[in-house]
């Protein structure tokens, strides 16, 4: 009971500390975006082709783009205070709704990619640490360095060539079979088929990082006294590796994984472009190109929230992995 209350208090404090940070981020982003030449009205007029000065002016005043900067900033903050992310002129719908449509796809993609990266990274890292200095270690470390050097969008395209064009095993893009009336398990399997390639492309880079991190952390833990004690107790090498070494080596990996969740959204922009995956990254890119800054501000705000939440989760995870750390 007290443990839960401590966790609750810690989470509350994190939330309170996050508010000023987020406020600064919003204001900075807002002014940064104002530096961009042109606005949504310009782009929409350009796309329409035959816009007159008057229609552009009308568009601007309709979306409040003609107001002074500070006026718009306060209007935006006022919206936020009422839990509204504003209205997108370009998509003609509330930003919250727009993001709500795209968020599940991206979140799913990112979590699957992160899961692949952590599991594969831990497995490869453990193998490297167990065989440190021997052949498997050498091979995997060169392999992980290779993964680390491959641009995500390029490996995405190459996977499409191999698995979609040449072998025809997996779809080359999209997030589900259009017009299919699959239900239950079949629907999940269908989703999974569309998920494999993008998630793998996104994960590969992080697999390399976690593998190397796991290796280093495990080698460091290996020389600790309690590992020798465990061996002296007569535990099997497998138990020592999994229960005593790996568990402690998990700490740096979880820290990094938490930090990467935000950065993955950046990677998602590129991977979603390659696989025409209807997600948040793609939306962010379209918003920049269309100068639809309410949408972009909403996405940046959301991703900051995700990063802060991820850090809080990592803190809790650490307290669980290593009771000495405790919830502050």
């Amino acid at each position: 009971m007290t443990a839960y209350r401590r966790i609750g208090r810690a989470l509350l404090r994190t939330a309170l500390q996050a508010i000023p940070t987020i406020l600064v981020i919003i204001v900075l982003d807002f002014f940064l975006l104002q530096l961009a030449p042109g606005d949504a009205a310009d782009v929409m007029a350009g796309e329409a082709g035959s816009a007159t000065e008057e229609t552009v002016a009308a568009l601007r005043s309709r979306f409040g783009l003609d107001l002074p900067i500070l006026h718009r900033l306060f209007a935006y903050l006022d919206n936020l205070a009422h839990f509204s992310l504003g209205f997108s002129p370009r998509y003609n719908m509330p930003v919250a709704e727009l993001i709500g449509q795209r968020l599940p796809g991206t979140l799913l993609l990112m979590l699957v990619a992160l899961a692949i990266a952590v599991v594969l990274g831990l497995a490869l890292g453990s193998i490297m640490a167990v065989f440190a200095g021997k052949l498997p270690d050498r091979i995997i470390s060169v392999l992980s360095l290779l993964f680390y050097s491959i641009p995500g969008f390029w490996i995405g395209l190459m996977l499409i060539v191999l698995f979609s064009v040449k072998l025809g095993w997996l779809p080359s893009g999209g997030s589900g079979t259009i017009g299919s009336d699959l239900t239950g398990l079949h629907a999940v399997l269908d989703q999974l088929r569309y998920m494999i390639l993008p998630a793998t492309s996104l994960a590969l880079f992080y697999v390399a990082i976690y593998a190397r991190l796991t290796r280093a952390a495990m080698l460091e833990v290996k020389s600790q006294d309690y590992v020798r004690t465990a061996a002296a107790k007569g535990l099997s090498p497998f138990t020592i590796t999994t229960r005593h070494i790996l568990r402690n080596a998990l700490l740096p990996v979880t820290t990094m994984a938490g930090m990467h969740l935000g950065g993955m959204l950046g990677g998602a922009v590129v991977v979603e472009t390659v696989y025409s995956w209807p997600g948040l990254g793609r939306l962010a890119f379209e918003a920049v190109m269309g100068r639809d800054f309410t949408v972009l501000l909403g996405i940046l705000l959301l991703s900051s929230l995700v990063v802060i939440a991820a850090n809080a989760v990592v803190d809790l995870l650490h307290a669980w992995l290593d009771p000495r750390i405790g919830v502050r």
Partner: peptide, 19 residues
């Protein structure tokens, strides 16, 4: 530093270059 690192760096990059 924290504020800059909270923003997804590639999106920040796209914004800067587009601006």
């Amino acid at each position: 530093i924290e504020i800059v690192q909270t923003l997804p760096s590639f999106i920040l990059l796209v914004v800067l270059v587009a601006i």
